[in-house]
């Protein structure tokens, strides 16, 4: 149980359209991440699924039943909020129990569920404390616990890790993944952090300005971005984009003249004379001279130990290269870049 379907969902606040015609189907047990820059409508979409906001038009179905007019309380969903939204005047135990008491569940059943969730999340030790006495990470666990005890049809998580420090975020991410594996429940997770999206998701939904740009598995999105926006958004550091013009287009082989004059041979492109944008990931560029290599001037070298991040100027276009290992290079030097082995994405 936990199949969610959005059909032609639209939302506008006054004259401002924040969600345009979204169609999406989320399978039972799936971990779906909504990702996109702030203001893309991902939180609004989640709040509409939750029932906290009403869609302006379109249908929202949970397990085949249209729930447009069903209030949040009756949709059987649970939500983890960005601020955790723990009730500050209640103890952790009361926070966990509140939602269950509202369903008039027997007291021993409530106690059993709280005990189980507390064990799972290792929060037994501070069940009688108030949220104000807990650390950020502990509060986050309680927030998740409050959702778990409800045994919801689906979990909705609104940027649940954004208030944690970097280290805690990493470990909690792993725990969330484990939790999903264990509960096998549908989870919808909103974040602006593509690393969280890549590591957690079964499927990622990339949103921009109220529209779905692409839906797919993390590697789908990484390997086959549907457009330049998705390509730029997924992957870290960002993909390089190089402007150019197709000079000659032959069967299986064509030549692109990059802005600045250097030329690049590619397996296939569009028509001759067309202006194109080439996308190539920093990790896929190799250092070293070859017959098709490009020459660039280094502007900045960031030595990270295991790898070296090189910022370079390719005849007026900026390019970023991540080279494994350590390299004895300095800004101002010329380097040769080979794109021979790199998967190259073409955008119009």
């Amino acid at each position: 149980m936990g199949h969610i379907k959005l059909t032609n969902v639209k939302k506008s606040f006054g004259a401002v359209d924040v969600i345009h015609d979204v169609n999406l189907e989320i399978e039972d047990g799936e971990f779906v991440v909504f990702v996109g820059p702030s203001g893309c409508g991902k939180s609004t979409l989640l709040r509409m699924i939750a029932g906290l906001d009403r869609p302006t038009s379109g249908d929202l179905a949970i397990d085949g039943k249209v729930v447009n007019t069903v209030p949040a309380a009756d949709r059987g969903l649970a939500m983890v909020f960005q601020s955790y939204a723990l009730y500050p005047h209640m103890s952790v135990r009361q926070n966990l129990a509140f939602g269950l008491e509202n369903t008039r569940m027997p007291k021993d059943e409530i106690a059993a569920r709280i005990a189980e969730a507390a064990r799972m999340l290792e929060i037994e030790a501070y069940l009688d404390r108030r949220p104000g006495q807990l650390s950020g990470g502990q509060r986050q666990r309680v927030a998740i616990g409050r959702a778990i005890v409800r045994r919801p049809v689906a979990f909705l998580l609104d940027e649940p890790l954004s208030n944690l420090d970097a280290e805690l975020r990493g470990s909690t991410r792993a725990e969330l993944a484990a939790l999903h594996a264990r509960l096998a429940a549908t989870m919808i997770y909103v974040t602006h952090d593509q690393v969280e999206a890549m590591t957690l998701a079964d499927r990622i939904v990339v949103l921009r300005a109220g529209r779905i740009e692409q839906v797919g598995t993390p590697l789908d999105l990484y390997n086959r971005p549907a457009n330049r926006f998705v390509a730029g958004f997924i992957g870290s550091p960002h993909m390089n984009f190089l402007e150019g013009t197709v000079e000659a287009a032959g069967p299986g082989r064509s030549v692109v003249a990059l802005a600045g004059g250097q030329k690049l041979e590619l397996p296939s492109t569009g028509m001759a004379g067309a202006r194109v944008t080439l996308g190539v990931r920093p990790h896929h560029i190799t250092l070293g001279r070859s017959e098709s290599s490009l020459s660039a001037k280094l502007t900045l070298v960031e030595a990270l130990g295991a790898e070296t991040v090189l910022h370079a100027d390719l005849s007026g276009q900026k390019i970023l290269v991540v080279a494994p290992g350590q390299h004895d290079l300095a800004p101002g030097e010329s380097i040769d870049l080979s794109l021979a082995a790199a998967p190259i994405h073409l955008f119009d």
Partner: peptide, 13 residues
């Protein structure tokens, strides 16, 4: 915070 109200609504209050 309004999120507390939202959270309570999700908690079937």
């Amino acid at each position: 915070p309004d999120e507390l109200v939202d959270a309570a609504r999700m908690d079937k209050a």
